[in-house]
Design a protein around this nucleic acid. Structure first.
Lengths: 333, 333
DNA sequence: GCCTCACATTACATCGTTGTAAAACCCGGC
DNA sequence: GCCGGGTTTTACAACGATGTAATGTGAGGC
């Protein structure tokens, strides 16, 4: 049987509350008592029961992180940083995946409401109104990434500006027929919409007449889907000068297809991505991309979340994280 | 204020225990009462408090998953599958990273002992005796991967056999000077030791005289470290015929270096990896690797874990998951 | 030597849920 | 109409930690 405060108290010859005081350190405890208690804790190998503590003071010390699909490099890197930052601040992180089924986002909310997690960092997939109109009793939530509406605190990168800058960067190397990979036709992904908008704004500024046949749709943002989409596109269309993929993962799928067809990157076509995942650096050729500090995204999300947990009523915050264009081999020398 | 069983009970005109009975469904409840209670639950938007439940019945419904580094594709894929499988069975997953600091493994154990998690799936980095001699009161644990000692239930792939088969496969294409990337010099990683052993066994069988200058050490199993290790190796040694990297991540780093130096894969050198991460398929050229069913690893781990939680005393189990060599472009046509 | 005041410690109740054991209920049979 | 049998519901206590408020302890001042 595991030791409890009671056992420790008995062994140290004090009351349970004193043991609790020693551990929590808010109520002062005399040196000698503290020593006795700490001794007893060690001897009994006492570990406090967090369920009990959570029940008593209404907080569990756990936050939930919900991502579309942990297996994708982008999600994995975000998860890594969130876990790291949270750990530094004494939080544990519970992971959920929402990708396969939008219903999960709803499910999550209610889990958060069952007091096992104190707050929620959510990277939504579709999440329009659906999941969030759960009603008044929303748990403290911070959203990651692009969202169509201002539903909660949020940390994001300015996708419009980033996509515009990337398009410009591609044009700077003399490319005019710049295609984008990842536009969505059916369900509107906010990220796809915003990135497309930035791309179009850049074309406009550059005086390049927009050509809709250069918008290559790709529903799922995976290498597989991107490879398939690009392959069938190439079968039916001439090769563009440049290809701006809306994520690095898609770019990696695209590079693979181009290589298989003997199309040289960057000589025949320039390729760029978005997210700066670690593997982009080791892609062949190394991938030009939109980079941003993912650790900062994580720490800002956590900062907003803890603030929100402390003050449920404060105004909704938006943090915009800086980005920069990192030019590597896939767009030229 | 959140509704509790008491509130629901009052509204439904029954006792709190009856509400509990309706929710848990073990004690029979008459149809009419059940209806009243369910109605009340809906009206009050009642969600049970999991801390209280956890306190009362000693189980939280949460398991912990500890991985070296979530950001690596291998860990990410494992995490993905564990979360998926766990979810299907009604478990939540708490994620911890142990990579940066071996002390975390210890820390984890005690967290597991604080009743916030019911069990632990641990993919150890170094974990020799250190972390596990915490003593008698170990939480239910399942280890993933290669471990030097039989400390707990375990799920793994037979690295020795897999490395042997891969080495043979490389030799089958006529390559004789087969190098391995990832041997460890300092702290002994069990996986490195076993994979090296398999490689050497194959050479032995093939009658190839082992050449220690073909063992390329690489402490960290990241693309970065692999790229650095390979680059400095190539500066000092002639090009081998084949390169067997102990993980796909390392292989991706290696491919990048080879490409930068204009060394053609697979013409000048064959490259193989281990783990079959998703991106290997989209590497340039696509990567030959040791593949195994990661979802099976996850589900077997969970199976062992739940068994262990049910019967703390049973004998230690080892599950060996099948692998197969997947030959792609990086080793020839 | 006694009283006050500040500080350290304690007893008790409580968080929300559920197991135990006992009570209430309902039905048919005599 | 009453009783026995089973089924449904209830009261109570307990899980372990901690906030509240009250009690105990000691030092210092008169």
């Amino acid at each position: 049987m595991r030791a409890t405060v009671k056992d420790v108290a008995r062994r140290a010859g004090v009351s349970p509350k004193t043991v609790s005081n020693v551990m929590n350190g808010v109520v002062p405890v005399s040196g000698s008592t503290r020593l006795k208690v700490e001794q007893a804790i060690l001897e009994l190998d006492y570990v406090p029961n967090l369920s009990a503590r959570g029940l008593r003071n209404g907080r569990s010390g756990v936050i939930a992180l919900a991502l579309p699909d942990l297996a994708t490099p982008y999600s994995a890197e975000i998860a890594h940083h969130v876990v790291e930052v949270a750990h530094e601040q004494g939080w544990s992180v519970q992971i959920e995946e929402t990708g396969s089924d939008p219903g999960r986002e709803y499910e999550l909310m209610s889990r958060a409401r069952s007091n096992l997690v104190d707050g929620l960092i959510l990277n939504p997939v579709v999440l329009d109104e659906s999941a969030v109109k759960v009603g008044v009793s929303l748990p403290p939530v911070v959203l990651l990434g692009e969202v169509s509406q201002q539903l909660a605190d949020r940390v994001w990168v300015d996708s419009v500006a980033a996509a515009r800058d990337m398009t410009r960067a591609l044009a700077r190397t003399g490319r005019r027929r710049i295609a984008v990979l990842g536009t969505a036709e059916g369900r509107h992904s906010a990220a796809a919409v915003l990135r497309t908008r930035g791309y179009q704004a850049a074309l406009d500024e550059l005086g390049i007449y927009p050509d809709d046949s250069l918008l290559i749709p790709c529903e799922k943002w995976t290498p597989q889907a991107a490879a398939d989409a690009l392959a069938s596109y190439l079968d039916a269309h001439p090769l563009p000068d440049a290809l701006f993929c809306f994520t690095d993962s898609m770019a990696i799928g695209a590079l693979s297809v181009l290589w298989k067809r003997g199309i040289k990157v960057p000589e025949d076509i320039a390729v760029a991505g978005f997210d700066d995942i670690a593997d982009g650096q080791y892609a062949v050729p190394s991938l030009t991309t939109v980079s941003f500090d993912k650790r900062l995204v994580a720490s800002e999300a956590l900062r907003l979340l803890t603030a929100r947990m402390a003050d449920r009523a404060s105004e909704q915050q938006v943090v915009t994280v800086d980005y920069r264009i990192v030019e590597r081999d896939s767009t030229g020398t």
